[in-house]
Amino acid sequence: MLLSFAITAILAFYVAWNLGANDVANSMGTSVGSKAVTLRQALVIAGILEFTGAVLFGHEVSATLATEVVNLPLFAETPQLLLLGMVSVLLACGLWLQIATSQGLPVASSHAVVGAIAGFSWVAAGVGAVDWLMIGRISLTWVITPVVSGILAAGFYSIVKYSILDRPNPIKQLQEWIPWLSAILLSIFGVIVLPTLFNRPLFAALPLPTHDLPIATAAIVAIALSLISWRQ
């Protein structure tokens, strides 16, 4: 058992190392390329945010990958086979990410993980071992996500271009718009992130009604934070 844990931990570190090398470049490449932050600053920011996101918000994603892609009852009598399969998933994902990163290819680690889990399950216990409905739902998000992101980015850039870049004094316009953009960003953060954050066991265990934090309250808190930053 101790040996299995050690091997799994090493492979998990190997995957995380390559995941950071590939995925952080995807998310921070624009900031570094535009000289908004240096490479060292990007690594620090990404390290903090990636770790925080994984610890606070990664539980649901991990639970889905671990229990809803594979038909677990088929492995009830052979748990060692399931363990070996999951270890092979870590190894396969780590190798693929390393190969892709060495070639400068930005790839999605989620695609690799889901594909590897489906692949080993199919080979180990047959086609029925894979929850194809869940695979379809996950794949649908892969198609929808870039489309929605593109639409939002195009709309947001159009607003910035019209309101700031095309004005006679774009620097002055930028200074006027920054507080409003910060307020919008922090409000979205409050509405989406704060209720999820306060539902975590760390906060739910406190003798405070934080685990029932309504969306309206979260939005008010976020707007208040944005106003404070505006005043400063």
Rank of each mutant, 00 (worst) to 15 (best):
A100V: 06
W17P: 02
A154R: 11
L39D: 14
I192R: 03
G20W: 03
L227H: 09
M28D: 09
T210A: 10
A6W: 11
P73S: 14
F203G: 13
L43Y: 10
S121E: 04
L84C: 06
V130P: 00
P207R: 04
E77H: 08
I178P: 02
F156H: 14
C93D: 02
A124K: 01
I45R: 01
I144E: 11
T145P: 04
G190K: 00
V148P: 03
V148L: 15
W142Q: 09
I10W: 08
A222G: 15
V37G: 01
A125K: 10
L197N: 05
L213I: 15
V160C: 06
L174M: 06
I10R: 08
L105H: 12
L72I: 12
A16C: 12
Q173R: 15
Q175H: 15
S110K: 06
I117R: 01
I171S: 14
I215E: 13
Q41N: 15
L185E: 15
I10D: 14
R40P: 01
L197H: 12
F57M: 10
E77R: 05
N22R: 05
T78G: 05
L213D: 09
E60L: 05
A66I: 05
G85L: 03
A118D: 00
G115S: 11
Q98L: 10
L206P: 00
G126M: 14
G150Y: 07
V123N: 08
I184V: 15
N22G: 04
I117P: 00
Q98Y: 13
P195K: 04
I178T: 13
A218M: 07
N22H: 07
D212C: 05
G190C: 02
I117C: 01
L225M: 10
V127F: 13
L227S: 14
S88N: 11
I184K: 00
W180Y: 15
A25I: 05
M134D: 02
T78K: 03
M28E: 13
N22D: 07
P73M: 14
S102C: 06
S102H: 06
Y157M: 07
L82T: 09
I164K: 04
V37P: 00
F5K: 14
Y157N: 10
V70W: 00
A222D: 03
A205C: 07
P201Q: 13
R167A: 07
G58K: 03
P146L: 08
A63I: 08
L97C: 03
E50S: 06
F203L: 15
V123R: 07
I228C: 04
T145M: 07
W230F: 09
I144D: 08
S187D: 07
L97S: 01
